[in-house]
Amino acid sequence: MLSSAIIVFREVLEAALIVSILLAATCGLPRRTFWIGAGLLAGLAGACVVALFASSITSAFEGTGQELMNATILLVAVVMLAWHNIWMSHHARELVAHMKNVSARITDGSLPLYFLAVAAGMAVLREGSEVVLFMYSVTASGSSANSMMTGSIIGVISGILVGRLIYSGLLRIPTGRLFQFTGWMILLLASGLAASAAGYLMQADVLPYQAPLWDSGYLLSEKSIFGQLLHILIGYQERPTAIHLTFYVVTLCSILTGMCWVSRRAEHRLHASEV
């Protein structure tokens, strides 16, 4: 029971963390719950479909279908998170004003926030399909099915609870600092996801195999809870290669550049309207 709880917890944790950080990062945005919720539901439905077609996906593209799908899901999530951060560096100030004072308006509040839906959906899709497959495996295996099923459910619930805790924790950050903080979190998270995508592309032989630069598994295993947390939050890998690092750094720099550029342009416009 405990082992199945841990397996499911590990899978759920990643999705739960991404979604709770997104929720905190969009605090005060009108209709964000709708968009993130819709993304979650679509992601869950998608996870079931992926699990159902697992065989055909695995054998697709000469046996690399699964890796290519995972890499695609991760990269789409990276693009959506990047877009979120760049969008927020333009709107954060209005949002803070709005949260402090109800009379302030968010000019683009009616904009479709579908990038939030896609980001949340992608987070659930990849890990969710593995949970569905595992749970199917458990129910079909007979004898110890009941206790393992209980374990899986405990895993799902505790994963969601940790997400909920993180969310409440983030909301304790003063409003003025909140978006700055969640912006940094999403920046590191997205870079880590890009590095993971690179790993799948290497596994599919799309990118050449490389020997790891180091192995820090004996210091901090990626499978320990703390290692797993760091893996999700900042992209910690125990055996990174030069390709992993390149993907990480390039993603980080691209998003940062986009954020700086947009916020500088927004400032210029503000000054221009004041004059």
């Binding site: 695995t58 054998s59 699964q66 890796e67 497959l133 790993g199 596994q203």
Partner: peptide, 15 residues
């Protein structure tokens, strides 16, 4: 570093 789901009654090639 390697992670691959192998569905029931099927084969997967892993490099």
């Amino acid at each position: 570093t390697l992670e691959k789901v192998i569905p029931g009654n099927s084969k997967a090639s892993i490099m």
